[in-house]
Computed example of a mutant assay.
Amino acid sequence: MKKIIFKFLTRLPSKYSINGLILIVGLFIYGIVGSYFIMGLNLIDSIYYSVITMATVGYGDYIPTTGIQKIFATTLALAGVALLAYVFNIILTNFQEKMRLYSKGAKKMKSIKDMDDYYILCGYGRVGKVVLEELTQRNQNVVVIEKDKERYDGIEEKKNVVSIHKDATEDELISHLAGDKCNSIIVSTGDDVSNLFIVMAIREASPNAWIVSRASKTENISRLKKAGADKVVSPEIIGGKDLYFESTRPHLLKITVRHTSDELLDEFEIISKHGCTLENIEYHLPGIETPLTREIKAIEFSDGKEYHNYLKTHPDAKQALDNLYKTVNNIHSHLISGPDRATFKKLTKDLEKIDEIIGINLTNKEIAKITKKEI
């Protein structure tokens, strides 16, 4: 308790502390000079008289007699009283503010303690804001740590969101929060150097924590992994891919089909024949909106032929693929990029000869309604 009170009384706002110190020094000089020239005292007595008058003690050993002396003593005493009140008010206000913050911090720590589990989000910038929205939409408990005051003030606290205005590199804070109830720690500041230090601090304090970090530059991905991050995500790289896909949107075709794994090579041949690229394959579980997605990026027919030969020589892999097809009732979608829409029309006609086409450019929600009937 003594330690807390000491911090409260010593950590005064610098602006007001400096102002108070300047006023005290100024008034003290005024008292010494006035006592020396107006009261006619020597230097030692001038210091003594200034102190007792400013402190309103007034022992009466030096009594002003002339008008100018009385005016001087009055102004010195009144200024001393006002200054004492000012300084006391600073101390009291600062003490009350510290007590308020301490009480608020204690309530927040209790709220975190009462959570069954939670995510820790370090950094509430542009990316951190999106991450928080994603987590809260899924009713997850989140502890947000942000050292920037302006960003911290912009965090909307809810029942399942607790914000802490501190530096995430403080080992004591992270080690206290990154316990068994912490699902994951997400480091999302916009500065890779800060992310690196935060990851190192977290890993040192919590060896078993699951850490996901943001990386703004690709060359820092390996550094963050070496520092202890389990996963490193680059929003810039992801954003670049999204920009590419959006720019090619008029030349993207999502075609939902039904066939077994034995028709894979024939599909590859048709797609490559039309100069198109198989970007990915989505496997639609019956009645579930979010599909299982495999990134392919196959352009040449030789890619498909190589995979076909692999399945022929690896029966376990072929059996696993067949089981996947059975799970989704052979319904899946191909995301295909191509030169133009005319090419897509020709490609679709050729695919109709070997596949059962369920739909073109269907949404996942529409596909889920169709596959729900397969249950």
Rank of each mutant, 00 (worst) to 15 (best):
N89W: 08
G60Y: 05
L324V: 09
K149V: 08
R100W: 07
A168D: 04
N42D: 15
G58L: 15
L224F: 06
T93P: 00
N160S: 12
T256K: 03
K98I: 00
T343D: 07
A215K: 01
L252F: 04
D262N: 12
I211Q: 01
L177D: 03
I68W: 14
I155W: 02
K217H: 13
D242Y: 06
K7F: 09
E146K: 03
A77W: 10
S337K: 07
I255Q: 01
V25P: 01
I29F: 14
L21T: 12
L285A: 11
D148N: 13
H314R: 09
D114H: 07
Y307F: 15
D171G: 13
R294K: 13
S333C: 10
M200S: 14
V25W: 09
L101D: 13
Y30E: 07
A55C: 14
T371M: 06
L84D: 09
F88Q: 00
Q96H: 05
D148G: 03
V130C: 06
L335N: 04
I90V: 14
K7G: 08
L78Y: 14
K7N: 14
V212Q: 08
Y152Q: 04
P207T: 11
V81M: 10
T343R: 08
G228S: 03
I47F: 14
R203K: 15
L21Q: 06
E289D: 14
L43C: 08
K346P: 00
S261G: 08
D355Q: 09
L135I: 04
V144A: 02
L132F: 03
L84K: 04
V33L: 15
I354C: 06
Y62T: 13
K2S: 13
G26I: 02
I367V: 14
K217Q: 11
L243H: 06
D61W: 10
S46W: 00
R138D: 15
N139S: 11
T136S: 13
R203H: 10
D191W: 06
G125C: 03
V232T: 01
Y36K: 12
T256G: 05
N89F: 13
T218K: 15
Y36W: 14
T10P: 05
D262H: 11
L43F: 15
C276E: 03
A342F: 05
E146S: 03
V131A: 09
I68D: 13
Y307V: 06
H334G: 03
N208C: 01
L196V: 04
N141D: 07
T260N: 14
G40E: 07
E170V: 04
P13V: 02
I22M: 12
K181N: 15
N208E: 15
H251M: 08
G31T: 01
I281L: 15
F95R: 00
E219G: 00
Q137V: 00
G154K: 13
T248G: 00
Y49L: 03
K349D: 15
F95H: 02
M54P: 02
L101C: 06
S216I: 05
S46V: 01
I47Y: 10
E219N: 12
H332V: 02
T189H: 04
T93Y: 05
I29D: 05
V144T: 03
D303M: 01
I238W: 03
E356Y: 09
V130A: 12
V143W: 02
L335Q: 06
K217L: 09
Y36I: 02
T327C: 11
S272T: 09
I32C: 11
A317K: 11
K181E: 11
G80Q: 07
S206W: 04
